[in-house]
Design a protein around this nucleic acid. Structure first.
Length: 352
DNA sequence: AAGCCGTGGAA
DNA sequence: TTTCCAAGGCT
């Protein structure tokens, strides 16, 4: 028995029933593939269902506000995925008459769709034999063929792609692609289940007893630490309490999400030093500001950064304007915010 | 090409 | 606690 045949048999027996497994609608396949980029199925599952409930068809997404798309994406991370999807939906409405493109090349041109996603959509939705190379496939083929090149380099990726091209089923490319990914996710895991593996007779890593050596990797990532001093500034006017929000428009994390006015420092500093800083002075000099409460310290871990954050709850008089977006506290949950902000809001829920 | 973009769960 | 890394893409 060859690779493809063993794989097909394994897949038929072991595949999971997933919300997007049965459909061939390119829109739904697209949504699922974007959500699943660098994201575990368990984490993306409910997001997929909510996304399709709110935007059942492409034109619904295209006519939405970006803020509403981001709100639906809140907590999932990598928010450029949501921004790009929204832009691409508009693009398809305008430039493709609302019809999802049907060739690999046309799909590949769309914003937010790279080699992997174009191959996935074109094979699953349209039966085009374009092989997918994702993290699962890199790991599986790296081990099975004993590929010596690091999989996080172009050379390693190309080597895997060539093997996938040779093996892909011309009759059922979508099933083949899903099968190699499913196999990587369930059997050839980072810590693999070789004992029960039907592919071990042909697996180079297993036969040479070198499983731990694959996949070869070259880079290791480093994290930098940033210190955020968030200003949770409330204003009371009569019965109504407002708070200042700030949309993150810069070329930085959480682009187009909302958070609070922020003083960032290169190292940890105390509240005493903070109120002596230039930034604090620029904001509040001559104004009546009272520190109501200082939050605990939050450590928020991102892929390349560690955010150490404190929240200073401040009260300011209604006559002191500030150059930020003033929002009724009751409305705050309508805005898309990073998980860090969401967690803080849970702490101060009693305020609104 | 190498660094950046989130979050959470498992080893 | 630390480290890894998950159906990647953009710049």
């Amino acid at each position: 028995m060859n690779f493809t045949k063993i794989l097909a048999k394994w897949y038929d027996k072991n595949k999971r029933e997933l919300p997007w497994r049965r459909t061939k609608d390119p829109y739904r396949i697209w949504v699922s593939e974007i959500i699943l980029q660098q994201t575990r199925i368990e984490q993306g599952w409910d997001y997929y269902l909510r996304f399709l409930e709110k935007f059942p068809i492409l034109c619904a997404l295209a006519s939405a506000e970006e803020e509403d798309v981001l709100k639906l994406w809140q907590g999932l991370g990598y928010y450029s995925r949501a921004r790009n999807m929204h832009a691409t939906a508009k693009e398809i409405m305008n430039m493709h008459q609302g019809i999802f493109p049907k060739t690999y090349e046309e799909i590949r041109k769309l914003k937010g769709i790279g080699d992997y996603t174009a191959a996935a959509i074109s094979s699953i939705a349209f039966g085009i034999p374009s092989p997918v190379v994702d993290g699962n496939v890199l790991r599986l083929f790296s081990r099975f063929f004993g590929i010596p090149d690091p999989v996080d380099t172009q050379k390693g990726k190309t080597a895997v792609l060539e093997k996938a091209k040779e093996l892909i089923s011309p009759q059922h490319p979508g099933d083949f692609n899903q099968a190699i990914m499913e196999f990587g996710a369930l059997q050839c895991k980072p810590t693999p289940d070789c004992k029960t593996c039907p592919l071990k007779p042909g697996c180079v890593a297993f036969q040479q007893n070198r499983i731990a050596e694959f996949p070869v990797k070259s880079k290791k990532q480093r994290q930098r630490t940033r210190y955020f001093h968030y200003l949770f500034i409330t204003v009371d006017k009569g019965k109504n309490r407002s708070v200042f929000l700030k949309k993150r428009t810069g070329n930085d994390i959480w682009k187009n999400l909302f958070d609070f006015p922020l003083i960032e420092t290169g190292k940890a500093i105390s509240h005493k030093k903070l109120i002596l800083s230039k930034e604090w002075n620029d904001l509040f000099s001559g104004k009546n500001v009272v520190l109501v409460k200082e939050s605990k310290r939050y450590r928020h871990i991102l892929s390349h950064q560690i955010i150490v954050a404190k929240f200073y709850q401040l009260k300011i008089s209604p006559f002191s304007g500030l150059p930020f977006q003033k929002v009724a506290l009751k409305e705050i949950l309508k805005y898309p915010v990073p998980r860090l902000i969401e967690k803080y809001l849970e702490e101060v829920r009693n305020l609104f």
